[in-house]
Amino acid sequence: MRFLTITSPHSARPNSVTVTMLWVIVALLPGAVAMTWYFGWGIAIHMLLASITAVVAEGLVLKLRRRPALPAIQDLSAVVTALLFAIAIPPLLPWWLTLLGTAFAIIVAKHLYGGIGYNPFNPAMVGYVLLLISYPVEMTTWLPPIMLNQTPLDFAQTLHAIFTGSLPPGLSWDGITMATPLDEMRNQLNHNRMISEIRQSPLWGDFGGLGWEWVGNWYLLGGAILLYKRIISWHIPVSMLGAVLVMAMLFHFLDQESHPFGLFHIFSGGTLLGAFFIATDPVTASTTHRGQLIYGACIGLITYVIRRWGGYPDAVAFAVLLMNMAVPMIDYYTQPRVFGQQSSSNE
């Protein structure tokens, strides 16, 4: 963190966790609104559902730990966890899965490790990965973006689908759902089709999937807000996106027909959301600037490796959790030299 020199009067900011979290929520809004626009009311419903669950779970667990609940709820960190979780999950996910994932994120991933500031793993991603591993079918049932969707559901129908699992008459789950662009690309490549052939389908936009890439742009805007407000530093997003881009371009130029263009990986899946909002979580990320560069680059590397050779279409969540584990070691080896310390005694 940089301390700005400002003239007096110096006034301390009030509770800075709340302010930080509030700005994260503000920065998340463009992307969230875009998601709701492209994929229907499900996203908004899940955001509300996850937020309520997170606040209730936080209150319960704090009561159990005999800590004052109100200040911890007011710092909004539980709400941020819930929102990040809610925009990562499919829009028509059954309601109880959202409850399960959010409650697990708050109770197990956050509070069993000691609460805010102590959790080694990003809670939102723990909840997401729990569901992805346990319920792979539900978690990969995405809707097509609005311009490809022949039968968009209205608010009441979406609510009905989430809470009862039944669709309006005449529609079937197979009929209305569609794979994510990453999933689609992967399936087609597994069928030995060439990229130029795959990309002729109306599914694709300029870089990633139609609609999806625009959501990515709005996350980019949110990330710019966070950078401008100095809530995050540039190190993690730049190194993470850089690593994904370098890996993807390298393989793209080696074999253009079986590796999509680098920007496809940037604008697909959770790359941009992960780079600006998830990997930069101040609690679970590396704290030194050199460490942040290593941490971000490794996340990008692992993301690409799992997407290309692993068993899951997207891998940002796995990559973030794996690197969360390495953070103590990264921090240990990248401690900045104290001013005046002999550089020869440093490693």
């Binding site: 399960l100 197990v108 729990l130 591993i133 346990s134 319920y135 792979p136």
Partner: peptide
């Protein structure tokens, strides 16, 4: 009943 697959995978044992 939709089982939580994680429970019968190795992480479920540790948790």
């Amino acid at each position: 009943f939709k089982g939580m697959l994680l429970a019968i995978l190795p992480p479920g044992a540790f948790i």
